[in-house]
Amino acid sequence: MRFILLTVGAIALIGCRQDMHDQPRYRLNSASDFWSDGRAARPAVKGTVARGMLKTDAGLYTGKINGRDVLEFPFPITKEVLARGKDRFAIYCTPCHGLTGHGDGMIVTRGLKNPPSYHSEALREAAPGHIFDVITNGSGSMMSYGARIPVKDRWAIVAYIRVLQQSQNVKLAQLTTEEVEKVKASERPAAPEKKAAKKGGSH
């Protein structure tokens, strides 16, 4: 009799296996019926600062000092930073702004009203702090990317946008003779008014 009970019990337990795997603890992003907003993850208490989150460097974290866009990058821009910027730009910005920043990304072909080209006079002359602010807080109908992209990556994207802008706005006089030859060779017979020269073959 005892044996039968044990067997039936064991078989029953196999049935509940998955349920017994759920332990009474919260994971990131779990729902909770305890808090009124239904979230297990709690926002920081007002007036407290988490470790490593003390943001005293306004220029770095907001792109503004005393309400004015910063004109300089808050850290040196190296080759690695530019490579990182290119990578992050491809993930977060190309769907709308396109690989070269002309505002012709994939989502535009699906009905998005054209985002502006980065190659306008206004955006070429915009301070780095302005572009940083657009990424952080959004602009007009563009949503903010502050919650998705860490601060340093945002600056790297700004730096890469500067590279894109350069690449589409090179004067012949800035090129070496070799490069001029290369540009001429690549020019089709019926060339558009002002062929954009590209350096380093990025796109």
């Binding site: 769907p95 989502i107 699906r110 009905g111 998005l112 109908s141 949503m143």
Partner: peptide, 8 residues
Amino acid sequence: MSCHSMIW
């Protein structure tokens, strides 16, 4: 909403 505030 980055996209769906503007399309669909």
